[in-house]
Design a protein around this nucleic acid. Structure first.
Lengths: 121, 121
DNA sequence: GCAGAAATGAAAATGATTTTCATTCCCATA
DNA sequence: TATGGGAATGAAAATCATTTTCATTTCTGC
């Protein structure tokens, strides 16, 4: 069931490891690759499931996909230029664990993003 | 030019200070208010411009509007039954601030959610 | 070679958001 | 009180990312 199409992955890499589904699709088109938009979406979703890429949101709501290392980390995103910095989340891990225990939750995960204006913007 | 319709604002307040445009609209409909969806969108945008409300994104990309003054809190969500607990995020606030400073970001906000299985599930 | 499963992609559907545009409301001034 | 113009309103159409449908093609193991 692995729909993690390698051509899509390699295109995402070539795009700087950071692009929307539409961008990946247009890039592949421009490069003469024959692929359908549907397949690009499916491949990206699959890559997200396999935790090979992360998905974030642009300010306009468009999903952007981003290659990421295996280590669990968080993002500091510039809301103007989209620049992203991967940051350490030790404090969050602990917070999530404590909060979950306190309320009797198990098998917990979490998301946390910080957004603002970067130095250049 | 102030399109910050007070009925929209008061509905957003009644919704717990946290809702999407569509939800605000549906809520107003249900309460018998006569208003157009377009106006709801315009009013919310206007409130954002006036910095009376914040805008965030749900995981599916839908924009959600939040009253600025509201005590900022986070959520612990059960991924099985959807039960939600509002939790304190003091640790997160500090983490976000430190991380932002460290990387030269300003005007920062953040999102953080914890999800897992609640005691009943 | 062949059946059945998985992958593919074109086209249609969906759903949030925005735009268009004609109408209505408000309000200051003649 | 009439009136003229700018602002507000909302229905309907347009936009755009994303998902679904479904028919077709490609793989796989036998």
């Amino acid at each position: 069931m692995s729909r993690s199409n390698p051509r899509v992955l390699s295109t995402l890499e070539r795009a700087g490891g950071f692009a929307s589904a539409q961008e990946v699709y247009r890039l592949m088109q421009r490069e003469g690759e024959s692929i359908g938009l549907t397949t690009v979406y499916r491949a990206l979703q699959s890559l997200v499931n396999d935790k090979i890429v992360d998905v974030l949101r642009r300010e306009d709501g468009e999903a952007i996909y981003r290659l990421c290392g295996e280590a669990h980390h968080h993002h500091l995103v510039c809301k103007s230029c989209g620049d992203t910095v991967e940051i350490e989340g030790g404090a969050i891990e602990k917070w999530a664990k404590v909060m979950a225990e306190e309320h009797g939750f198990r098998e917990v995960g979490h998301t946390a993003e910080i957004f603002g204006l970067c130095g250049k913007c």
